[in-house]
């Protein structure tokens, strides 16, 4: 079995673990411990959820904090949604994330294909060039990038938000590994059929690597959606802020006693897309992460 098949297999097992053959009473303590840990880990999110339905009056007048609201209200969501253009922020985040994800996946597929299948001059040097970028911390380059994007007139644009991140060395490396594992026979068959490189990439390589590509897609999506430092400095127009920056401004936009209910409602709004991805694509996500172990 190849490494990547193994990872694929693992990912399936991590997301949908193998079950014991039959229930044993002895498991019960383990269940209790695991549920307790699970609840502890999810506590911040659970609190945010309940807080988002608690009226401000209750939050500030209670003598001690309480988890559940006495009266459930939906007002906090309305407040958050109206106080700040969250709809616009979410849209911006989707555009930025969409551009970055598409760019990273597409460009990584192309580059990985070249590295896996082609022989050309400077191949090793170019590969080192790509991989070397993994070791450059973002902190070293964001000031010049800010200046570059400003000079291009791309501040406050989707281009400014996305273009610096359209390539991913990790994606190139990971997908190259995938492509290298494809069975040899396919090449021979394609060659006999006279297929072009381009055709072969899209008709054979990509469909056979769907697992790896989708895992990388999710990985890339989350990374882009959760970006913070870059959008913070490259946008100043409210209509171009992303959701992550929006929540930060919403937190700052508290002149009096902080309206925690509305802030948590805002946080829930921003978390929803990633939570949905988590619930729907847990397997791919886990696989993407498990495969990032290959990077090291």
């Amino acid at each position: 079995m190849t490494t990547l098949d193994a990872v694929e297999q693992q990912a399936v097992e991590i997301a949908r673990p193998k079950r014991a053959d039959k229930f044993k009473w002895g498991e019960i303590p383990l269940h209790i411990v695991l549920i307790a840990i699970g609840l502890l880990v999810s506590t911040p999110i659970i609190i945010a959820f309940f807080m988002s339905f608690t009226p401000l009056k209750e939050i500030v007048t209670r003598p001690t904090p309480e988890l559940l609201p006495d009266t459930w209200v939906f007002d906090n969501y309305r407040t958050a949604w109206n106080a700040t253009p969250f709809a616009r922020f979410m849209f911006n985040s989707f555009v930025q994330t969409g551009l970055i994800t598409i760019g990273q996946v597409l460009f990584s597929v192309l580059a990985a294909y070249a590295f896996a299948m082609f022989d050309f001059r400077f191949k090793n040097a170019l590969f080192a060039f790509v991989i070397g970028s993994l070791f450059v911390p973002f902190e070293l380059i964001f000031i010049p990038n800010f200046i570059t994007i400003s000079d291009l007139g791309w501040a406050n644009t989707y281009a400014g938000l996305a273009v610096p991140f359209l390539a991913s060395a990790f994606g190139v490396f990971m997908l190259r590994q995938f492509f290298l594992t494809l069975p040899r026979d396919l090449f021979d068959a394609a060659k006999v059929d006279g297929a072009s490189n381009w055709y072969y990439l899209w008709k054979v390589v990509v469909p056979l690597s769907k697992g790896g590509i989708s895992a990388f897609t999710i990985f890339s999506f989350l990374g882009a959606w959760n970006q913070y430092l870059w959008p913070l400095i490259i946008t100043n127009d409210e209509s171009m802020r992303t959701a992550q920056i929006g929540i930060r401004f919403f937190l700052v936009n508290q002149e009096r006693a902080t309206d925690w209910g509305a802030i948590m409602a805002g946080a829930m709004i921003v978390m929803v897309p990633t939570l949905v991805v988590f619930l729907v694509a847990q397997k791919q996500l886990v696989k993407g992460i498990a495969m990032s172990g290959l990077k090291g």
């Binding site: 291009l152 791309w154 406050n156 281009a159 209509s239 171009m240």
Partner: peptide, 10 residues
């Protein structure tokens, strides 16, 4: 993306 959106180019 850089120019179509009205806000991008005040």
């Amino acid at each position: 993306c850089g120019s179509d959106d009205p806000v991008t180019d005040p």
